[in-house]
Every structure is written in C-alpha cells, then in structure tokens.
Lab assay of single mutants.
Amino acid sequence: MATGGRRGAAAAPLLVAVAALLLGAAGHLYPGEVCPGMDIRNNLTRLHELENCSVIEGHLQILLMFKTRPEDFRDLSFPKLIMITDYLLLFRVYGLESLKDLFPNLTVIRGSRLFFNYALVIFEMVHLKELGLYNLMNITRGSVRIEKNNELCYLATIDWSRILDSVEDNYIVLNKDDNEECGDICPGTAKGKTNCPATVINGQFVERCWTHSHCQKVCPTICKSHGCTAEGLCCHSECLGNCSQPDDPTKCVACRNFYLDGRCVETCPPPYYHFQDWRCVNFSFCQDLHHKCKNSRRQGCHQYVIHNNKCIPECPSGYTMNSSNLLCTPCLGPCPKVCHLLEGEKTIDSVTSAQELRGCTVINGSLIINIRGGNNLAAELEANLGLIEEISGYLKIRRSYALVSLSFFRKLRLIRGETLEIGNYSFYALDNQNLRQLWDWSKHNLTITQGKLFFHYNPKLCLSEIHKMEEVSGTKGRQERNDIALKTNGDQASCENELLKFSYIRTSFDKI
C-alpha cells in the first residue's frame, strides 16, 4: 500500500482533458527560462521544448504516446526543470519506465491550478516501474492521483506527508504495488545497510526511497516546507523545498512566496507586481503582455491589467481597466465587458449561442446573426445582446428569417469595421425574408467608422429604411451602385405612401 494514499474509496472516473512563447529569463536562482504550460502528445517531438525550461508557468501534460519505446527515452533528460506552477499529468506514455532521468531536479509542483483537485496525476502508464522524482520536495496545493499503472512499484516507500501538507485526498490505487509483488529495495538494503531515512506512518517504520538508488530526502521537522541542505541544516524561511546553503534567500532552489532578481522575498516591493503567484514583474512586463494579447485571437491570451499590486489576466467583477495605466478602477454604474472572439468572429444561430455573449459591452471581433427560429426570440436576444455598444469588426445579418427588427441591439452605437466582410463591408444584410426595420432612427444613433453597407434580398425592408441608415451611420456616399439592390429590397412591402385627393359631386333626387 502506498504510504499516505487512500484505498478502496469510491472515486469519480478520471477524465483526461485534452506555445513556446518565453516569458522571460528567471535569473540567477533558476538555471534556465520560464516556459508556458505545455500539452505534449502523440510523439516526442515537442518534448524537446523543455530543454531550457527551469519553470513551467502553467501545467505540463505528457500523454497518448503509443509508439514510443524505452530506448526512445534513454537520452532524454531535462535537468534544468525545477518547478511547475500548476500540475504534472502523465497518461498512456508507452515505453517510459521512470522519471528519474527525465526530470531529475523537479523540486516543486505548486498546484496553482489543479487537474480535478490533483497536482500530480500518473494514470495508465503501462510501462512505468517507478516514479523516480527523487528531488520532489513540495506539492504546495492539491493532491496526488496514481492509478492503474500495472508495473509501478516504489510507492509504499514514499512518505507523501513530507511532500504535501495533507495526504487525506491522495488516491493511489490499482498499481502493481497493490499486489505486494514489488519487493522494493532501498539503497544499501541488499548489503544489509540502512542508507535512507525511515519514518513512521500508520504504525509502520519504513525506509523512504524513490528507487533502488535514490533515497527520499527527509528534512528535520523544524525546517517545515522550506527544505534543508545535504547536511540537514534548514533553508531560509522564504525558500521552498530545498537550498544549497542554509538561511540564505539567494540560495533557495525555489521560493515559498515570490522570486525577485535572484532572491526569494515575502512580497513584491514597489515598483514590482505579483505575477502568477510566484514571481515579481515590473510595469513594462505587464504592459507588454497586455499589448501582445490586445489584437491576438490565441486562446488563453489575456490583456493583463494591474489590481491590488498584482498583474492579473482581467479586472475583477465591479472594476474596469483604465487604459492609460492598466489599473483596475471601480465602475460607475454597470461595468464594461470586452469579449474577445477566439477566431475573430462568432455566429449567433440560437439563443444558446447568444447567451455566451451575455453582459458583453464591447465585441472584439465580428458578429454573424443567422437565426431561423426560436421561442420568445426578441426578448431572449435583447437579454443577451442588448448591452453590446461596440463591435470592432463587422455585423452580418444573414438568412435570419425569424427577425423582424434589429432593435434587440438596443445599445449598439459603434461598428468600427477594423475587419470587413469580403474585404469591403462593415454591415452586411443578406436574404432576411421578414426583416422590416433596422432601428427606430428617431431614437437610435449608430456610427460606422469604416467599410460599406450591403443589402440584398431583404424583400420587406424598404429602401427608405436603408437610406436612413446611410445618413445616420455616416456611410452615405461610400456605397457603390450594386451594394444596395434596388429590386430585391422592399419588393414585397408597401414602401411608397402617396396622399390621394378626392373630389365629389353631391346629387339628390331633384338636383344634379
């Protein structure tokens, strides 16, 4: 039985969820670079991206490699990797027998973001014989899940209580170790020597080791999670996991709180800001991140802002960003909400898709409305799209047979046209069989910064309504002859009103 693990408890099935942008060198404390989270699957090609990484700022997932063999891993080693800020997950990587050479110096898994409450997941690794993470000293947050690894031993010899604050939620089941077939031998045991430290858990006094050649490092209890030197002297209180010299914040392997210019500090002093819960960055760093993602459509890219001495992905609820200094300031009234469309555009074809934009005031991208039916549609669209004030790209209304009016965009005031449909149009209306009105132009103002209007096959939309939009939106004169079809717009509506004058002759039985 794995020490510190839980057996036999019912657990939810383990679901495996399925960018080499360097964020800056980590400095003297770390020998390499800070790398983003990685999802490495199918083959070993991307694994080489770990070569210079000291910190993975995010998670590391290595999974679904069915053609790899043990010899493929023999020359692979990433000794610079010290810390993973989120979680480490391995799933069905064939041929991998140990992690001792792959990650010989991995010391800390912070667990800032977890995989279903777990910071370390080893699942269905069919050839893994031992973990071998002999320098792993601290899992700051989260638990361990090690399950269905039929060859995995050296679990009962690990004292997880020396690595985690609590072992109650560890789930370590259905491994070879369960069948008591392992016969784990710690260093020196074969020669009758006791080389590794022994600890007591559940009444068992057991030597602690990761492999037959690597003991588990056990520091004096007084050192807590700070770690200790090879001689057993406690590291500085700002260290986490390990250090090369005692009581020196510049000799830590990793930091308990924050890293700044080669030393570990309790908090980031001005003019620095907390970033990702582990390091200090200056304003320029946060500003660069903001600008890199301002026009990016890459998933996970955030326009970072500053709030409460932190550089964070977005302002919290009730705050909006001051564009001059990136500071989050309290909103006066309802907060603006910028919604970034991942692929640059979004099609609204149902109430469900409209709900995804609920509360958005600025759309960074283009909207395509293609709704053919739905219950209580006008009210639903207004509830979900009615706060949109600005669209950076274009607005396209296409084959939306259920629409009679666009009044559900009740606050839309600006279409920038930074991206144009077919390279020309910022407003595009095609084949809307029941569209009769755009907006009530006596109450609604709309500016279209650039781009043209396109109207074709809107049989109940009168040309007068379209011409009014040209005047109000500032697009009059931009359109070419064929942009607004004269014969297919309003051709099934009563669009022309003329005053009919009647004269009559009164007659009676005795007068003409």
Rank of each mutant, 00 (worst) to 15 (best):
residue 28 H to G: 00
residue 31 P to I: 01
residue 33 E to S: 14
residue 33 E to M: 15
residue 36 P to R: 15
residue 36 P to E: 06
residue 37 G to I: 03
residue 43 N to C: 05
residue 44 L to V: 12
residue 44 L to T: 08
residue 45 T to F: 03
residue 46 R to M: 03
residue 46 R to A: 06
residue 48 H to Y: 13
residue 49 E to R: 05
residue 49 E to N: 14
residue 52 N to A: 10
residue 53 C to T: 00
residue 54 S to V: 06
residue 57 E to N: 15
residue 58 G to M: 00
residue 59 H to K: 01
residue 60 L to H: 00
residue 62 I to T: 02
residue 65 M to E: 05
residue 66 F to L: 00
residue 68 T to I: 00
residue 68 T to W: 03
residue 69 R to A: 04
residue 71 E to P: 12
residue 72 D to M: 15
residue 72 D to S: 10
residue 74 R to T: 15
residue 76 L to A: 13
residue 77 S to Y: 08
residue 77 S to G: 13
residue 78 F to Y: 08
residue 79 P to Q: 08
residue 83 M to H: 07
residue 83 M to K: 04
residue 83 M to C: 08
residue 85 T to R: 12
residue 88 L to A: 01
residue 89 L to N: 00
residue 89 L to R: 00
residue 90 L to I: 03
residue 91 F to H: 01
residue 91 F to L: 02
residue 92 R to W: 04
residue 93 V to I: 06
residue 93 V to S: 00
residue 95 G to W: 06
residue 97 E to I: 11
residue 97 E to Y: 12
residue 100 K to E: 10
residue 102 L to W: 02
residue 105 N to I: 01
residue 105 N to S: 11
residue 106 L to K: 00
residue 106 L to C: 02
residue 108 V to F: 04
residue 111 G to T: 00
residue 113 R to C: 05
residue 113 R to I: 09
residue 116 F to R: 00
residue 116 F to W: 01
residue 120 L to E: 00
residue 121 V to F: 00
residue 122 I to E: 00
residue 123 F to P: 04
residue 127 H to S: 14
residue 130 E to C: 05
residue 131 L to T: 14
residue 132 G to M: 01
residue 134 Y to L: 07
residue 135 N to L: 02
residue 135 N to W: 04
residue 138 N to L: 04
residue 139 I to S: 01
residue 141 R to W: 01
residue 142 G to T: 00
residue 142 G to L: 04
residue 142 G to M: 00
residue 143 S to G: 11
residue 144 V to L: 05
residue 146 I to L: 11
residue 146 I to Y: 03
residue 147 E to R: 01
residue 148 K to M: 02
residue 149 N to S: 06
residue 149 N to I: 01
residue 149 N to K: 01
residue 149 N to F: 00
residue 151 E to V: 13
residue 152 L to Y: 03
residue 154 Y to N: 05
residue 155 L to Y: 01
residue 160 W to H: 02
residue 161 S to E: 10
residue 162 R to V: 10
residue 162 R to F: 04
residue 163 I to V: 08
residue 164 L to V: 15
residue 165 D to M: 14
residue 169 D to E: 13
residue 170 N to K: 08
residue 171 Y to G: 13
residue 171 Y to M: 11
residue 172 I to E: 04
residue 175 N to D: 08
residue 176 K to A: 04
residue 178 D to A: 14
residue 182 C to F: 04
residue 183 G to M: 15
residue 186 C to T: 02
residue 189 T to E: 03
residue 190 A to W: 14
residue 190 A to P: 09
residue 191 K to T: 14
residue 191 K to N: 15
residue 192 G to L: 12
residue 192 G to P: 06
residue 194 T to R: 11
residue 200 V to F: 10
residue 201 I to V: 13
residue 201 I to D: 06
residue 202 N to C: 06
residue 204 Q to F: 13
residue 205 F to G: 08
residue 207 E to L: 10
residue 209 C to F: 02
residue 213 S to L: 10
residue 214 H to N: 09
residue 214 H to M: 10
residue 215 C to M: 07
residue 219 C to A: 02
residue 220 P to H: 08
residue 220 P to C: 04
residue 223 C to K: 01
residue 224 K to T: 12
residue 224 K to P: 03
residue 225 S to P: 12
residue 227 G to C: 02
residue 228 C to F: 02
residue 229 T to G: 03
residue 231 E to T: 10
residue 234 C to E: 01
residue 234 C to M: 01
residue 234 C to K: 02
residue 234 C to V: 00
residue 236 H to V: 03
residue 236 H to G: 09
residue 237 S to K: 07
residue 238 E to I: 02
residue 241 G to R: 03
residue 242 N to L: 11
residue 246 P to R: 10
residue 248 D to E: 09
residue 249 P to S: 09
residue 250 T to I: 09
residue 257 N to G: 06
residue 260 L to T: 12
residue 261 D to K: 10
residue 263 R to A: 10
residue 265 V to C: 03
residue 265 V to W: 11
residue 265 V to Y: 12
residue 271 P to K: 11
residue 271 P to N: 06
residue 274 H to T: 15
residue 279 R to T: 02
residue 280 C to E: 00
residue 281 V to W: 00
residue 282 N to D: 04
residue 283 F to A: 02
residue 285 F to Q: 11
residue 287 Q to E: 13
residue 289 L to W: 04
residue 290 H to D: 03
residue 292 K to C: 07
residue 294 K to M: 04
residue 294 K to Y: 15
residue 296 S to Q: 14
residue 297 R to K: 11
residue 300 G to I: 14
residue 302 H to A: 13
residue 303 Q to G: 10
residue 303 Q to V: 04
residue 304 Y to K: 04
residue 306 I to Q: 03
residue 307 H to L: 07
residue 307 H to Y: 07
residue 308 N to L: 12
residue 309 N to M: 11
residue 310 K to D: 15
residue 313 P to D: 12
residue 314 E to N: 08
residue 314 E to K: 07
residue 316 P to Y: 03
residue 317 S to M: 05
residue 320 T to S: 10
residue 320 T to M: 08
residue 324 S to E: 04
residue 324 S to L: 04
residue 326 L to F: 15
residue 327 L to W: 08
residue 328 C to D: 01
residue 331 C to M: 01
residue 332 L to F: 09
residue 334 P to K: 12
residue 336 P to F: 07
